[in-house]
């Protein structure tokens, strides 16, 4: 009879787990929605920004700007964007593995590598494995442009001050709800801005620039960094919640399967217990009748 009780207890436990995973799925879904709205409302800003940046880059050469300075990449920094919380499938792990591989390769070449983790999972992972600077954690709950600006302020002055030579940004690219792909962008030196729109530019209006086009471009470059970082942040949040939704959906489904098979087992054990008891009674009465 003990077995029966055990199974019953197990069923209740799995039920409770299912309740939790289901709730988490719904929370992730609503957070995902907010993150998606954020990504969508960022799009016009980013698009407009790139348009102006490109049209400016067509007119002036920004080659001498300190953010574009190419140096021998002796000292490398890596921004590693992960979520603060777990339970979102392989979301963080895939990224961390990619970062780890990258670091190993660079260290193998004799470079100096430091990590700037954004998100708790990344910091925890690298705490004992690598050099960490300017860690930021518990930031994704509520963030705005000032976070991107803050991160930029951590990385721009030391790059200009030649404290390091290259900066990479690792984050999870948001493909769709179910798919996030670890991606890497080189932030510094900034890649030269696309100049291939030459023909279209002739159709463009000739602007009066205030200040000069060159100065304007120099002002826009740090903002370009903000845009890149902000986009990565927004994609990370959307991806994290998308990944969690998928993971929790899976977990809920697994719970249901487990409950089903456990219930089946429970019924079988119960039935066999009843049968055994009946056999006992029948056996007993028959023995009595014979006697």
């Amino acid at each position: 009879m003990a077995a029966l009780k055990d199974i019953k207890r197990k069923i209740t436990a799995v039920h409770k787990t299912r309740q939790i995973t289901k709730a988490m799925n719904m929370v992730a879904a609503s957070k995902f929605k907010a993150a998606q709205t954020r990504m969508e409302s960022f799009r016009p800003y980013a698009a407009k920004f790139m348009e102006v940046l490109n049209s400016l880059a067509l007119r002036v050469d920004a080659g001498s700007h300190p953010l574009l300075a190419v140096r021998e990449p002796e000292r490398i920094r890596v921004i590693c964007m992960t979520s603060d919380r777990g339970l979102c499938g392989g979301f963080n792990n895939n990224l961390l593995k990619a970062v780890e591989r990258f670091i190993k390769a660079k260290l193998g070449e004799g470079r100096d590598v430091a990590i700037l983790p954004v998100g708790r999972k990344g910091r925890d992972f690298f705490r004992k494995k690598a050099k960490i600077v300017n860690a930021r954690t518990e930031v994704f709950g509520k963030f705005d442009m000032s976070l991107a600006v803050g991160i930029s302020d951590d990385v721009i002055p030391p790059f200009i001050g030649e404290e390091y030579d290259e900066l990479y940004l690792f984050y999870n690219e948001f493909v769709n709800v179910a798919v996030q792909k670890p991606a890497v962008v080189r932030l510094f030196p900034l890649p030269a801005i696309d100049r291939k729109e030459e023909i279209e530019s002739s159709k463009r209006l000739d602007y009066i620039y205030e200040p000069s086009a060159k100065e304007l471009l120099e002002k826009l470059l740090p903002m370009y960094v903000h845009v890149l970082i902000y986009r990565a942040l927004a994609e990370t949040v959307a991806g994290e919640n998308g990944a969690r939704m998928a993971a929790m959906d899976n977990a809920t489904r697994n719970c249901e399967e487990l409950i089903q098979s456990l219930t089946l087992k429970y019924n079988k054990v119960r039935q066999s217990a009843i049968t055994a008891e009946l056999m006992d009674i029948v056996g007993g009465t028959e023995a009595l009748a014979k006697g």
Binding site: V52, L56, L205, D206, Y207, I208, Y209, E210, L216, L220
Partner: peptide
């Protein structure tokens, strides 16, 4: 009717 202008 302002002339095209780009300013920071």
């Amino acid at each position: 009717g302002h002339a095209a202008l780009l300013s920071s």
